[in-house]
């Protein structure tokens, strides 16, 4: 499945939930991250139940004071 993660085209294997994508992408401090899916912020309680679809745009956001940019959230 093709996704746009933090602005970059990304290919992932099989079906994924948002939680699974956080692990797959090795997102740092996952307990602190906010996730924007197609322009809408997801509630944390939705991370586990939200399945990603082909072409979805996902942004990982932090606002901890060091900045608030997206592609920066992953390694």
């Amino acid at each position: 499945m093709n996704l746009i993660v933090n602005g970059n085209e990304t290919n992932v294997d099989g079906e994924l939930t948002v939680n699974e994508l956080l692990t797959e992408q090795n997102v740092k401090m996952p307990e602190m991250v906010s996730v924007e899916l197609n322009g809408q912020i997801l509630r944390r309680s939705e991370f586990e139940s939200t399945k990603l679809n082909e072409g979805d745009a996902v942004e990982f956001l932090y606002f901890m004071g060091g900045g608030h940019a997206s592609e920066r959230a992953t390694d």
Binding site: I41, E59, F63, G65, H68, A69, S70
Partner: peptide, 14 residues
């Protein structure tokens, strides 16, 4: 801009 919908909270925090 990079904060998306969290723009106002980022504006406060930063």
């Amino acid at each position: 801009e990079g904060a998306g919908r969290l723009a106002f909270l980022a504006h406060l925090r930063n």
